[in-house]
């Protein structure tokens, strides 16, 4: 496999190999997530249950608890990873991640407001969270704009917007302290008790978002060359930016409205993928989607089994892994 010469690019063979490896990760993480837990269920029984031949409590556990939770984890991972990958091209910023730059906080404040003030309208949480995410993205953009976009300004504007929106979230939790347990789980980002209703909330956004993202991959490639080159090549830069930011906000908002504020997936996953597969979005996006699904499924399995019977929210594990990674990137890229 070492046919790469000095100064050469990443070969298509290597990209396909990495994608295949990621697909294996997905299969392994999926299997672990449905088999492991307070009751260990062998894989054969899982296939039987999924295809309708199982019976008894194991069948119940798989179909009502583990399988939907695993699917939610995979979809959340896909959406957050795609959202981060898109934002990194749109904002020309290696540190862009829906959580860090405050888009998730926008979705979070809007979502938590819906949950606490207007309970019983779960179907509205995602659209409202999207409006929150998009508003946060626009505000960050306006604050960071001064003769063009600079990476450091986006991060700083994002920190400020996040802090502001975080204050809003805290205030909501104090005003509605009787309902705060649900809100606490939302803040930490966890998959506890996620089931089929949550799958139906996130699935349409995941499918539509992934499809649109892949359609835009060539445009994202051009956007990475910088505004002037992109314009010179005939790309409508402003329009592409707006459409792609909206798409990233929608992907992040749908994930946030199901699992709450799950950070760093959108940062770590696209970066690891970029290192292995390169910056061509036609490969980067499918790679990030696969790895995102594998990482969230795997991390959630670890977080809920490692300290049994206590279930750790997966967001805590992601933050423990993600914060040092963010600092590493900060030192390397800026």
């Amino acid at each position: 496999m070492e046919e790469k010469k000095v100064g050469g690019g990443i070969s298509t063979g290597r990209r396909v190999f990495v994608l295949a490896a990621f697909a294996v990760f997905v299969a392994v993480a999926f299997s672990a997530s449905v088999t492991l837990g307070s009751v260990r269920i062998p894989l054969e029984e899982i296939w039987q249950s999924i295809f309708g031949a199982g019976a008894g409590t194991h069948q119940q556990i798989i179909m009502n608890i583990r399988l939907p939770r695993t699917i939610v984890a995979a979809l959340v991972g896909i959406n957050l990873a795609l959202s981060g990958a898109i934002l990194q091209a749109v904002m020309k910023n290696p540190l862009a991640d829906p959580h860090i730059i405050g888009i998730s906080s926008g979705a979070g404040l809007a979502g938590i407001t819906m949950m606490l003030v207007f309970p019983g309208h779960e179907y509205l949480i995602t659209p409202v969270a999207f409006v929150g995410a998009m508003s946060a993205a626009i505000v960050i953009y306006i604050l960071a704009w001064k003769n063009g976009i600079r990476p450091v300004r986006i991060i700083l504007a994002g920190v400020a917007v996040s802090a502001f929106l975080g204050a809003g979230i805290s205030a909501m939790m104090i005003f509605y302290s009787d309902k705060v347990h649900g809100a606490l789980m939302f803040m930490a980002g966890g998959l506890a008790a996620r089931s089929w209703p949550h799958v139906t909330i996130i699935l349409p956004y995941a499918i539509a978002g992934a499809l649109l993202a892949f359609l835009g991959s060539k445009h994202l490639n051009i956007l990475q060359l910088g505004d002037e080159i992109a314009k010179g090549l005939g790309l409508n830069v402003e329009m592409t930016r707006v459409v792609m930011t909206a798409l990233a906000a929608l992907l992040a908002a749908s994930a946030v409205s199901v699992v709450g504020l799950l950070g760093f997936v959108g940062l770590i996953v696209p970066h690891a993928t970029r290192l292995l597969i390169g910056s061509d979005y036609r490969f980067l996006l499918p790679g990030a989607a696969l790895l995102g699904a594998a990482v969230v499924m795997g991390s959630d399995t670890f977080a809920r089994t490692a300290f049994a019977p206590t279930e750790l929210p997966v967001g805590i594990l992601m933050a423990v892994l993600g914060a040092p990674f963010f600092l590493f990137l900060l030192r390397r890229e800026l």
């Binding site: 690019g9 990475q224 060359l225 002037e228 010179g232 390169g278 910056s279």
Partner: peptide, 12 residues
Amino acid sequence: ILPQGATAPADV
């Protein structure tokens, strides 16, 4: 048009 100071991602 070829503007000044064009840069590409490191692996291109």
